[in-house]
Write a protein that binds this DNA or RNA. Structure first.
Lengths: 245, 245
DNA sequence: CGCCATCTTGACACGTATCAACAGGCGTGG
DNA sequence: CCACGCCTGTTGATACGTGTCAAGATGGCG
């Protein structure tokens, strides 16, 4: 997979076929730099539910999310849990520069990751400042998202929280339809939830019962249609947005 | 203030006397680079309550917090407010690279800022990668803090939230005693709250009445002693920590 | 077909919000 | 110098939203 076709171009085939290359970290790099990077990367598939990063574990590698959804969470000593973020392709996964991880990462759906060892990435970052710039911008984006979510956690009602969650998923799960939505071309969306009711509750600071009740309320109000437990359709996204508080 | 004493050293006097230089952004820089930076910086004092960054406003400058506490907050359309972060010296203030601010910053106490225009800093960042590295590390630190606070907002009880807030202030308001505390040399601390009850409530996702009730409960339990409305002493920090959940 | 995990629904409890009254500090002005 | 009003914070009574506990329903899968 990591072999390059020198008769064609300097770009590794792995990267040439990479769907997220232009949007993610690697968009920063020229062909030659991509080659340097790809010498150390490895594509791995992980099935839903597998632990990608264990809390308190030593950092050995980082990764780019290529496909699927990753769930980031933290736990109090007594077991109370809070999901502190979701990552979608092409997000960078891992806390660079830290010795130890301070959260848990789990595959929420089946995921594909492009892994790179800690030392390899850190060396490349020193060499190519544009790489650090990209990582910095992602950190800032995640910080913005975390702060937006703090408003949801601290100040919204259960009903608004659930609507906000559905809105988040509807607008992040599929970059293609999201692009069309932003041009006003789409108002109805169908999607699969990447999280169980328990995870949703842990994301929203609620119980699963409250999440369930608010979902049925949204269904009865016609804001969502339930295809099955895990897949919903939102007939009118603007209508959903008004429910987000 | 910005004149340098060429007979003594290349370092601008402004910076030579700067208390936070080694810990903050500028710790990245050599004397010559500091000089380049200080050509554009300006110390300003703002009194408690003044708005430092207006939401949605265009970004014209950034700043380092030199003294005091800055409160970052967001508001929903109907006026519900959430404080999404506090900044202490020597934190960097402002969302670099963004065209528009997406939160409000207010001086929680009287503050001193070291301001620098947007374009000046961005040019310097391009020139000195170490500067971007420092900013990146601060963004990552703030992200960690935001995620920790998400746990507080989503999963802690009112009592634990108030204890967590007091813990945060007690361990951040004064770097000197905090350093001694970490060596186990201090267990009692007295401090001034930089926030009103309203702000504390908005930070914790509670009402002022609930904050007030939890404070009296902590007082009656001997966890805190109330010197006056704004200044408390914590006789045993470890005892407070156990109340944080 | 039946088991198990996941989700939903119901009855009730409890924590926090809401609304209202009161207390204290502090500056202003008589 | 004290009276007054205002602002901030506290305390109390009650309401309401969400949590808790328990029972069913649904769906996937052997």
């Amino acid at each position: 997979m990591e072999r390059q076709d020198i008769h064609n171009s300097d770009m590794p085939v792995l990267c040439r076929n990479c769907e997220v290359r232009h949007r993610g970290l690697c968009g920063a790099l020229e062909a030659g730099q991509l080659l340097a990077l790809s010498r150390h990367t490895q594509m791995v598939r992980q099935e839903a539910g597998s632990e990608l990063i264990a809390n308190e574990s030593e950092v050995h590698s980082y990764a780019n999310v290529m496909r699927g959804v990753v769930k980031l969470s933290k736990m109090l000593e007594d077991g109370r849990q809070q999901v502190v973020g979701l990552q979608f392709a092409p997000d960078f996964l891992g806390r660079i520069y830290a010795r130890h991880n301070n959260l848990t990462a789990e595959a929420a759906s089946d995921v594909e990751l492009c892994r790179i060892p800690k030392t390899a990435l850190e060396k490349l970052v020193e060499e190519y400042p544009e790489l650090e710039h990209r990582l910095h911008e992602q950190a800032l984006r995640e910080l913005d998202e975390a702060r937006d979510w703090m408003v949801t956690l601290g100040r919204k009602t259960a009903s608004e929280k659930v609507a906000s969650f559905l809105w988040l998923i509807a607008t992040h799960i599929d970059p293609v339809t999201e692009a069309r939505r932003q041009e006003g071309l789409v108002e109805s969306v169908t999607f699969d939830l990447p999280l169980s009711r328990t995870d949703i509750a842990d994301f929203l600071g609620l119980t699963i019962e409250t999440v369930s009740r608010q979902l049925t309320k949204l269904r009865k109000d016609g804001v969502i249609e339930v295809v099955n437990n895990r897949t919903f359709t939102v007939p009118d996204l603007e209508r959903l947005e008004t429910r987000c508080g």
